[in-house]
C-alpha cells in the first residue's frame, strides 16, 4: 500500500518536472513539437493528479503543495506559456501556408516537389499540434 508520504513525494516530483518544462519553455523563443506535447501532457497529468488528491481530503502539507502547483500552472502556463505557444503555432502555420501557396503557381521540378513535401509535412504537423493545444484551451474554458 502506498503511504501518504509516498503520494506526497510523487506529487512533488511530478510538479518539479513541470517547473523544469516551464523553464525550458521560457528559455526558448520557439519550442519543438516534442517539447510542446511533453509540456501539455505533464500539465494535464499533474492537474488530474491534483484533482484526484483533493477529493480524498489530503493532509495540510500536501494541500499546500497542490495549491502551489495549481497556482504555478495557472500563472505561468495558462496565462503566459500556453498563449505564447498558440501564437507561435498560428504564425508558423500562416508563414508556411503563404510560402507553399506562392510556390504552387508554376511547374516545379521533381526535386523541388519532393523538397516541398517536407514543408507540407511540417505544416500538417503544426496544424495537428495546434488542434491538440486548442483542445487544452477548450478544457480551460469549461473549467
Amino acid at each position: 500500500m502506498t503511504s501518504a508520504e509516498d503520494i506526497s513525494k510523487m506529487f512533488e516530483d511530478e510538479s518539479k518536472k513541470i517547473e523544469n518544462l516551464f523553464d525550458v519553455a521560457d528559455s526558448k523563443t520557439e519550442m519543438s513539437i516534442h517539447e510542446i506535447v511533453e509540456a501539455y501532457y505533464q500539465v494535464m497529468n499533474v492537474s488530474s493528479m491534483a484533482n484526484m488528491l483533493k477529493q480524498v481530503n489530503p493532509e495540510l502539507e500536501l494541500k499546500k503543495k497542490i495549491s502551489k502547483t495549481e497556482k504555478l500552472i495557472s500563472q505561468r502556463f495558462d496565462s503566459i506559456i500556453h498563449p505564447r505557444i498558440i501564437q507561435n503555432l498560428s504564425a508558423s502555420i500562416q508563414e508556411l501556408t503563404k510560402k507553399l501557396q506562392s510556390g504552387n503557381s508554376g511547374e516545379k521540378s521533381k526535386e523541388q516537389t519532393e523538397l516541398d513535401t517536407m514543408l507540407f509535412d511540417e505544416l500538417r504537423q503544426s496544424m495537428s499540434t495546434k488542434e491538440f493545444v486548442e483542445q487544452y484551451e477548450n478544457g480551460l474554458s469549461h473549467d
Binding site: T97, L100, Q101, K110, T113, E114, D116, T117, L123
Partner: peptide
C-alpha cells in the same frame, strides 16, 4: 507514376 497531391490538400 509518382504523384504529389499537396497543393490540392492545401
Amino acid at each position: 507514376y509518382e504523384g504529389d497531391i499537396n497543393k490540392y490538400w492545401l
